[in-house]
């Protein structure tokens, strides 16, 4: 493998890692604070991708994608708020069993709604005109959009970090992770905080879905595809850890990138991800950055 080829794969892996990190960070944020593993996270991502597609095609090449992104984040955030208020509030503190089944049910409902509203056909979304060009590096051509995705992930990741560790909201969220009851007795409206956290998680899923839309065909099974990968990332990195999501996303993104390059390994790229999960869990059953949960 030449150096240029290697770079090609690495950049491909980084752009995978970029959107996967954004999505997995949302999953981790929600799990960390609400202790709910949101099976419908991929569904929110899918809603955003479809909304981006519809709006982008309406608005044209210059503004379309950006408008789509904004609308997608708003729509998905609202759906998230609805889910939190109607469903999740009732399952906080329940067994994982109940939470898994409730959010699993949401994946079925959302999949049905998305297929009914948008149809099951593939859609393509054009990148915004400003970054719709290619760059040549070491003899290979790269879509500028790949670098945009990587940059977006860096910005979003930094934003999440600042929010969590430099703001009052972040401090309250971290407090809610450890003791929501005490937080409520410390003058913080925990119910509202939970809604905010879930909407933030949904917004991250939406950003991931909107940003990924121009780089992939938007379709009605992307909920499952991303969910499996986001779970793999969470298991590798450790549920509830944002840093874990980053490391997990980098690992999974690169493994997929290298895996799909070869025609023999291509169909089984997911198998490599799986093998890494097994190895990590053998060494650290709660993921690289996860905290052991009470059994």
């Amino acid at each position: 493998m030449s150096g240029g080829q290697l770079l090609l794969f690495v950049v491909g892996g980084l752009s995978n890692a970029a959107y996967l990190f954004i999505v997995a960070a949302g999953l981790s944020l929600v799990f960390g604070a609400l202790r709910v593993i949101n099976m419908a996270h991929g569904s929110l991502y899918m809603i955003a991708a479809f909304v981006t597609g519809v709006v982008a095609n309406q608005l044209g090449l210059t503004l379309g994608f950006w408008g789509g992104l904004v609308v997608a984040v708003i729509v998905t955030g609202l759906v998230g708020a609805l889910i939190e208020v109607v469903v999740l509030r009732r399952v906080y503190g329940e067994e994982h069993l109940v939470q898994l089944l409730a959010t699993y049910a949401l994946t079925l409902v959302i999949a049905g709604v998305v297929r009914t509203v948008f149809g099951a056909n593939y859609r393509t979304v054009k990148p915004p005109a400003a970054i719709n060009f290619s760059v040549t590096l070491a003899g290979n051509s790269y879509a500028a959009y790949s670098f945009f995705m990587i940059g977006a992930a860096v910005v979003i990741g930094t934003g999440v970090y600042i929010l969590m560790y430099r703001t009052t909201l972040g401090r309250n969220i971290r407090a809610a992770v450890s003791d929501p009851e005490l937080l409520s007795a410390s003058g913080v409206n925990v119910a509202r905080l939970y809604t905010v956290v879930f909407v933030m998680g949904a917004a991250l899923a939406a950003l991931g879905g909107a940003i990924v839309a121009p780089s992939q065909a938007v379709n009605a099974s992307m909920d499952t595809d991303v969910l499996v990968l986001a779970f793999a990332i969470s298991v590798i990195g450790g549920l509830g850890s944002i840093i874990g999501s980053l490391v997990g996303a980098l690992i999974v993104g690169e493994v997929l990138s290298f895996g799909v390059q070869n025609q023999y390994t291509n169909p089984y790229a997911i198998a490599f991800v799986f093998i890494i999960m097994v190895i990590v869990l053998t060494i650290r059953p709660w993921g690289l950055f996860g905290k052991a949960e009470q059994t």
Binding site: L100, F231, V235, I270
Partner: peptide, 28 residues
């Protein structure tokens, strides 16, 4: 044997991965 190395929630997520792996084999 693999999935039960993890506990409860992680276990459930692992079964999802296993399921998709077996699906990928059947599909490809």
């Amino acid at each position: 044997l693999v999935a039960l190395r993890a506990v409860r929630l992680y276990f459930s997520l692992l079964t999802l991965a296993i399921s998709q792996l077996l699906y990928a084999i059947a599909f490809n």
